[in-house]
Every structure is written in C-alpha cells, then in structure tokens.
C-alpha cells in the first residue's frame, strides 16, 4: 500500500449498515462491486482514498496507530478503549443507550440488594465507573457477544449492554432498569495524520460530517 493512499476505517455491523447508504452519491461512495465481495479494503469514488471494513472493537487501534487516518466508531467503544486519537465530531447517527438490563420483574433495588451481584458485559470500564458512582460492588462477567442470554441461563443477574430499539431485550424477556450512558457514532482521526497534514484530512472529515448532516 502506498503512503499516498488514505485509509478511512468503517465499522462492520450495525453502524456500518447505517453508514454505507448515507455516503451513496458522495465522493466517498463505496465501490458497490467491491462491497459485494469479501475484500475488506474498498475503493471509494475518490482516487487515492479507500475504506477499511473493521470490527468496531479493532477500529480505534488502527486509527490510533495511524494505519487509518480517519474512522467512524461508536462512542461506547471509544470510551471503553481510551485510545489516543482525535474525536472530530458527533455524527449523531447510531444513537443508543448503554443500559443495565435484567429479567422482567427484577428491579434496580432488587439488584442493589444482592450480596453478590454478577453483571455480564462487553463494557467493563463503563460498568465499573457506574458501579463506583452508585457505591456498589459486583462481579463482572466479561462477554463479547449475545449478552442477553446471560441472565436467562443464570450466568449473571443482569447485563450492561447497548440498547437501540429494545427489540432484542423484549425478545429475551429483559427490561432496562437503569441507563448508564448514551452512545452515537463519532468521526475519529489519527492524531499524527491530522496534526501533520490537516490540509489533506480536513476536507475529507468535513465531507463525512456533511454527508451525515444532510441525511436524517
């Protein structure tokens, strides 16, 4: 890969699904043929600019290391990883809540009263911060996916997870008992690339911000 190729990291999954259609018709529209294939580096409508499709949890690392100059990632992931990168804008889409969820009928007070509370989560840092603020202690059960199963199968008393519409929770008989925080998609940039070559990055960053501003 040439140093001249500028890479932008996009997340796969929920955020990525929302993101790609918003860029259609813009200079950063993704090559549709390449998107249909299994390749993870996709050319855009602008020569010399390509998009990397990455798992959200890996994305900040690529940007912080300067491999990708720009990226789009959820603020929940950024807060968990605390990498050294720039966060140029809140793009406003992909909004969701980081919530404490338990089986229907289990209240927050009931969870507080447990002598040994077990919480399953992909977000240990945010969960620990909330526990400290609430003056609670708990055993954290680290999970990387399908956290909704944990309370149903007895792996944990409750989960801390992202909730967008609440549909998945409902399907598993879970309800939100507390909101720990809110998350949305953020435009991030590699510190070195942005500060040393702002003339190259700022127009692309503004283009991305504009693309999300003009579509609801």
């Amino acid at each position: 890969m040439s140093h001249q190729t500028l890479l932008i990291a996009f997340p796969k999954g929920r955020l990525g699904d929302e993101l790609v259609p918003k860029l259609a018709g813009t200079p950063l529209a993704l090559d549709t043929e390449a998107l249909k294939s299994r390749v993870l580096q996709i050319p855009t409508a602008t020569p010399g600019v390509a998009v990397l499709l990455l798992k959200g949890a890996d994305l900040p690392r690529y940007v912080a290391a300067g491999v990708a100059s720009l990226g789009i990632v959820g603020s929940d992931t950024l807060d968990e990883m605390d990498m050294d990168l720039l966060e140029l804008a809140d793009l406003g889409f992909g909004a969701c809540r980081l919530s404490l969820c338990a089986k229907a009928g289990v209240t927050l007070d009931a969870l507080r009263a447990k002598p040994h509370l077990r919480l399953a989560t992909k977000f240990p840092k945010a969960t620990e911060a909330w526990l400290a603020k609430e003056d609670l202690t708990a055993e954290l059960v680290p999970l990387s996916s399908s956290a909704e199963l944990a309370p149903l199968l007895g792996l944990a008393d409750a989960i801390v997870d992202l909730v967008q519409t609440g549909g998945t929770l409902k399907a598993h008989g879970l309800v939100e008992t507390a909101i720990l925080g809110r998350s949305s998609a953020r435009l991030v940039a590699a510190r070195g690339a942005y500060l040393s070559e702002p003339g190259r990055l700022r127009p692309l960053a503004e283009l991305l911000i504009e693309a999300f501003r003009r579509t609801p």
């Binding site: 140093h3 290391a65 300067g66 590699a190 510190r191 070195g192 040393s196």
Partner: peptide, 11 residues
C-alpha cells in the same frame, strides 16, 4: 512548540 514531519504519527 511542536515539530512534525508530514505523515509522521508522533511529534
């Protein structure tokens, strides 16, 4: 004061 080279990842 900070000195950068174009494209360098760190000052």
């Amino acid at each position: 004061l900070r000195l950068w080279a174009p494209g360098a990842q760190q000052e």
